[in-house]
Design a protein around this nucleic acid. Structure first.
Lengths: 150, 150
DNA sequence: TCCTTAGTGAGAATGATTCTCAGATGCACG
DNA sequence: CGTGCATCTGAGAATCATTCTCACTAAGGA
């Protein structure tokens, strides 16, 4: 579906995979990632792809997720029931993610790791090379739904 | 080793498990957690326990890790080769961890998630309920070792 | 168009973690 | 100092996410 011409500004499959080869399977997977819209597990992604393009193997989905992660288009944003959750990653600048634990929507947030934290690490003798920050919460819709349930 | 009398301020096995029952196996596991000193996987913890107290099953170690995590005495601090890394958690105040990727030593760091980040999340419609922050880097010894290797 | 090489699908393999179950043991209570 | 029973334990099977293998296909530069 949606086989119309899309504007060049919309992220197309090629962007998600960086420089790697673009196959029919990967095009379908990129489309499914966009259609999911929020955080998803590899299994959910496989199910979404299968709904429109049957016959794509689980291993291919895992490989695609790895490729998109390597390209920086996808980021792990926690886990659910033992499976890793991934989400489409916003533009190229350094940021982190806030995940709605109700519906899985994800928004980018600025990085809270500032110089003072790094220098206090430095004074403890540590050189920081990487960090991970993820916030969890409820989006407006899910918060309203939860409040109503009480 | 270090079988001297320790002051009451040192965390004893009971503290690590909160209110749950204290068995010989759990005492041995608590001792091993302390002897490891840094981040460890469940498998490494099992190996450490087995070195001094043979016959403790893997399932018991996993159960103990779950109990200590529930009691807040242990926290997950990333993963290595697909296994979760845990580390002894400092006192009861809110903090996060900085893990040396060389030797696994862990230090507590203050939480960088401040009001401004939360309020910007709020203005995006999100209510933040939890967050995860972990820094990775090299301790002084491992940094020196890495520099020397060049 | 051809060739090289990355990507693919199916299913087996791997490996961390959890579950099951019968038996052992803390520990609260008397 | 018993006793009762809920909790904990060990062994190994089971689960299940993820990765690997391998023969095959197809992208895309030359």
């Amino acid at each position: 579906m949606s086989e119309h011409h899309h504007p060049v500004s919309a992220p197309c499959a090629g962007d998600l995979f960086g420089g790697s080869r673009l196959s029919a399977a990967r095009r379908a997977i990129a489309e499914a990632v966009r259609s999911l819209g929020g955080a998803f597990t590899a299994e959910e992604l496989h199910a979404a792809v299968s709904a429109t393009h049957a016959g794509i193997g689980v291993a291919t989905v895992y490989r695609a997720v790895a490729a998109m992660s390597a390209a920086g288009a996808l980021a792990p944003v926690g886990s659910r029931d033992g499976s890793t959750l991934y989400a489409l990653c916003a533009g190229g600048d350094h940021h982190h993610h806030l995940v709605c634990t109700g519906c899985g929507t994800v928004v980018g947030i600025e990085c809270p790791v500032d110089g003072s934290l790094l220098s206090s690490a430095k004074s403890a003798g540590y050189t920081v090379t990487a960090h991970e920050v993820t916030l969890y919460g409820l989006c407006a819709a899910c918060a309203a739904c939860a409040a109503e349930r009480d």
